[in-house]
């Protein structure tokens, strides 16, 4: 038995708030901590972190470990991994949860190695095994064709969670918690890479992760020209345009609009899939949509196994008529 105890959630900060995924981590973390009868802690690092502690407490944390250092202002993986290593050694959690974010996906495996344990990435479910009290970590494998349940036999058991797979608690501003400042030395020699520039590629219009309606196109669209018709429908519905990987690889739409396992995981109210076959990797990114509607000329296409409504036909004929009719209906 190790002396490790409790659940710790690494809370990333963005736009002056703890990220939604951090709140989701605290949501599931609360459940796990309660089921173990142990404490839920949040780990926040950066500069001016004190401001975020109450947010983490409102989201479910009993305790916040704050690591304040101006060198942590900007994300740098070598520094962040060594600070998290130091934090984990001081806190000694039984379970550590991180978001499957740009940072989390590279920090978690490196951190796990340094702590002599293992990480399971992109979990869609976390639970405590009734018998062994170990963490059952469910994650999609084989591109989403299957799910695997893993158990890590060393501590801390590190997991990253998929966006929107877990539910955050309703923030409760009246919750009380303790804030503990801890120190972590930053070893300049550990810094091996230098981030010289960060580029945000602005997409015109709404972002797919924020839109209630997403119109998405696949390889069958055939050209950037074709995507104009998808944009027209998206504009009418006040939605966003997304696509499968081939649509991004062909530069018909920006890479940041890719839906799927290695793109964005979205859960809009309506997902309109046009000329997308519905590979498991693509569906990983959109199967959380409330209603999926598909247009595909192949009636056997896998997308129809997920779709609530389908049109088996050529999108070039279906889409203009569909958009025109909707326009009429919406005008009246």
């Amino acid at each position: 038995m190790s002396e490790n105890k409790g659940v710790a959630v690494y809370c990333e900060i963005k736009d002056d708030k703890i990220m939604p995924i951090a709140a989701e981590g605290l949501g599931i973390g609360r459940k796990l901590a309660d089921s173990l009868g142990q404490e839920l802690a949040a780990i926040i690092l950066g500069s001016g972190v004190g401001n975020y502690a109450q947010q983490a407490i409102a989201a479910g944390a009993d305790k916040v470990y704050a690591i304040e250092n101006t060198q942590l202002k900007e994300y740098q993986p070598d520094i962040y991994v060594s600070v998290l290593e130091s934090a984990a050694k001081q806190i000694k959690p039984l379970i550590m949860i991180m978001g499957q974010t740009d940072g989390g996906r590279e920090l978690a495996p490196r951190l796990a190695f340094r702590l002599g344990t293992a990480a399971i990435l992109d979990c869609v479910d976390l639970d405590i095994d009734g018998e062994s009290k170990r963490l059952l970590q469910t994650k999609p494998v084989y591109g989403g064709n299957a799910q695997a349940v893993f158990v890590t036999e060393t501590d801390p058991q590190i997991a990253t969670i998929r966006t929107k797979a877990m539910t955050a608690l309703e923030p409760d501003a009246s919750r009380k918690g303790e804030v503990v400042n801890i120190k972590a030395e930053i070893d300049a020699a550990a810094v091996k890479t230098k981030i010289v520039k960060r580029v945000a590629e602005e997409v015109a219009g709404m972002k797919i992760e924020d839109a209630a309606i997403v119109v998405s196109g696949g390889r069958g669209i055939g050209s950037a020209e074709g995507f104009k018709q998808l944009e027209e429908l998206a504009a009418l519905l006040k939605g966003a345009v997304g696509g499968s990987r081939p649509s991004c690889d062909n530069n018909w739409i920006p890479d940041t609009s890719q839906v799927g396992l290695t793109g964005k995981i979205i859960a809009p109210d309506v997902y309109i899939a046009v000329a997308i076959s519905g590979s498991s990797q693509h569906m990983s990114g959109c199967s959380g949509a409330k209603t999926i509607m598909a247009i595909n000329k192949d009636k056997e296409a896998n997308i129809f196994r997920y779709a609530r409504f389908g049109v088996a036909g050529d999108w070039k004929k279906v889409l203009p008529a569909f958009t025109a009719r909707l326009k009429e209906l919406m005008a009246s």
Binding site: N145, A146, V149, V151, E153, A294, F304, R308, G310, V311
Partner: peptide, 20 residues
Amino acid sequence: NKTKLRRLFQPVHEGKCEFV
């Protein structure tokens, strides 16, 4: 291995597509 595979399963989709 530090991690053990407990279970591997295929999620089911009912597939109730209404074709117009």
